[in-house]
Amino acid sequence: MAYSDKPNSASSDPFTPETIMLRLDGVVKQFSNGFMALDDIHLTVEVGEIVSLVGTSGCGKSTLLRIIAGLDVPTLGQVWVNHQPIASPQPEIGMIFQEPRLMPWLTVYENVQFGLAGLSKAEKEHLTYLVLERVGLTAFAQALPRQLSGGMAQRVAIARALITKPSILLLDEPFSALDAFIRMKLQDHLLEIWQYDRPTLVLVTHDIEEALVLSDRVIVLRSNPGRIHQEFVLDLPRPRKRTDLRFQQWKERLLNALDLTADSRSSSSAEDPLPLEVY
């Protein structure tokens, strides 16, 4: 295994062009039990680009996203976001998890403001209603999380991530817990919201159609150890229609690409693979 020998220096990286938002350089993640989750990942994502990460369960997609978010540190290699090396969560990186993860004791309004710091009350209120309007939940500002449906709760989570105006938004299977109809609606909705600030999106998904509807580029990971297997630049015009012939052809191509990774599917995939390490 030839890892790049670049030092993990904390200096910003002068060789990356201006238009690069995210850069992964030889990222390796080996867990304390010796398991190689990621091996030598190189990836660059342009400003405003929408990239999907797909791959079989357990191939390290979440791990990769958590490393980009600064929630996990790579064993080797370096991540740059906006030319800054990442070692811990940064304000310009937004994260949306598979579950909404709302604070059950806060109202929708307060949940959306959760990540806002150092603003006056009036500014906060202004921003909160702005994003609540974008996700269409203004009427539910005073509701508690337990009063929301799954789709609504996930929209609140999106609002909470958007309010800090991240330049890059990471989404880990954000809609996978929702039924197919709501999922489709939220995918379109996400694109609509994306139009306002056009943050860079890195999206982990199990859903080929989701990747096809949303992304400019699809990256197929292969498991054990997690590596980038293939990369597809989608030349589909937007807005994309799921029923389009080209769309369907792309779907087949991607399914085939995923099938190639079937040989390593035997690897275990724990439902909740993160032990106390993060505490």
Binding site: G115, A117, Y279
Partner: peptide
């Protein structure tokens, strides 16, 4: 742990984490 992680994403320090996540939870 998942709620604590949300606190980490938004860069709460230990004191804020206690006050805004641990205490109510």
């Amino acid at each position: 742990r998942k709620l604590v992680e949300v606190g980490k994403v938004y860069r709460l320090n230990s004191l804020q984490l206690i006050q805004r996540v641990f205490l109510p939870a």
